[in-house]
Amino acid sequence: MAFSFTYYLREFFRLEWLRKFLFVRTAPLAIPSYFRNFPELTGKTCTHHLFCMMACPAPGAIDVIRTPEGWHPRIHQGHCIRCGLCVEACPNGVLTSGRILETMFFDNTALSFSFRIDVDTERCMGCGNCAVACPVNKLIDPQMSHGGRASTDELLLKVSEGKCKVLHVEKCTGCKICEDHCPNEAISVARLLEAVHAPEEEP
């Protein structure tokens, strides 16, 4: 008789059963390699485009520092939220995290960026801090005086008639330095990130 009283006793007083009952643990607490973890360096060369810092939603989670070997992104644990946007944004594949790079390769996806700059004319005092701080402006017109007045119209931002004017929004790289330098919170940059499928190759 399979389910008799003696069977019951023999089953539950086996040493094996007692050992399992007292000492068994759930599966080892290891994080699989395909989980999205804190981004790590792949060893490819960083070209200092700063797309990672621009795409990052958490303040202070990533910065790119200069070492004797070249530019070098750093992830700050305690700030990083492991969203993986820096991995997707990087044009050179410097960072890796989980299966993001493989998925992007097989699905042929990429992130596309566009930016919108809004100037609150009620608050703007025309001080020109934004135009002077803008790194894109610095490349176009290094001679720009304080106050943000310049002769050329090729600039991204310019002060004219006492207000900041956005001239070429397509030149914006989304660094938000103008926001940090505005004393009156008049300027705000909106970053529009879109995942696009099958991006066209640059000619």
Binding site: P57, A58, P59, H79, C80, I81
Partner: peptide
């Protein structure tokens, strides 16, 4: 979590 360390987002 990140919040007690840095405030996170």
């Amino acid at each position: 979590g990140n919040c007690p360390i840095s405030g996170c987002v």
